[in-house]
Simulated scan of single mutants.
Amino acid sequence: MILARRLSKERPNDGILLNACCPGWVRTDMAGEAAEKSPDEGAVTLVYLALLPPKITEPHGKFVSDKEVKLW
């Protein structure tokens, strides 16, 4: 949140959104087979954020999981 605020202040015309995101518990070598999401399912939020339309101003400085802003 602090870095997002700084980015907005120092580069207000760049239109860059800065967020934190969590893919969830993803089946990987580290998480194991018991994890609830496949790698493809874990990537959904990351891809969603990467492909937000131009000129959009939110979310910015937020924590996003399952394509929703979460309180933290």
Rank of each mutant, 00 (worst) to 15 (best):
L52P: 01
A43E: 13
L49S: 12
E41C: 04
N19Y: 14
P12V: 06
E33F: 13
L52A: 10
D14S: 02
S8I: 10
V47S: 13
G15Q: 09
W25S: 07
R6P: 06
E36G: 12
T28V: 13
T28F: 00
C21L: 15
K67S: 14
G24S: 09
M1K: 07
N19V: 06
P39V: 08
D66H: 10
L17V: 05
P53K: 05
E58M: 03
E68H: 08
N19K: 03
N19D: 05
L71P: 09
D66V: 04
G15F: 06
N19P: 14
A20S: 12
G15C: 09
P59T: 02
R6M: 13
G61R: 13
D14V: 00
G32Q: 04
L17N: 10
P23S: 13
A31S: 14
R27G: 08
A31Q: 03
C22R: 09
L51R: 12
G61F: 15
K70I: 04
W25R: 06
C21D: 11
V26M: 02
H60E: 11
L46I: 13
E10L: 09
G32W: 08
L49M: 05
I2P: 15
F63K: 00
R11C: 07
R11D: 00
A35L: 07
V47P: 00
A34P: 03
V44Y: 02
S38K: 03
I56A: 09
G24C: 10
F63E: 00
R11F: 05
K70D: 02
G24E: 01
E36T: 08
T45P: 01
G15A: 08
E68A: 07
L7V: 14
G24A: 03
L18R: 07
P39R: 02
K62Q: 15
D29A: 08
S8R: 04
G24W: 06
P23C: 09
L3D: 05
T57W: 05
E58R: 09
K67V: 01
K67E: 10
A20V: 10
V26P: 01
P59M: 01
T57F: 15
D66A: 07
K37I: 04
T57S: 15
L51P: 06
A35W: 11
K37V: 06
R5T: 12
T28R: 00
E33H: 14
L49C: 12
E10W: 03
A50M: 08
E10R: 03
Y48I: 00
T57P: 15
E41S: 11
P59E: 12
E33W: 03
K62L: 11
C22Q: 14
R27W: 09
R11I: 02
E58Y: 09
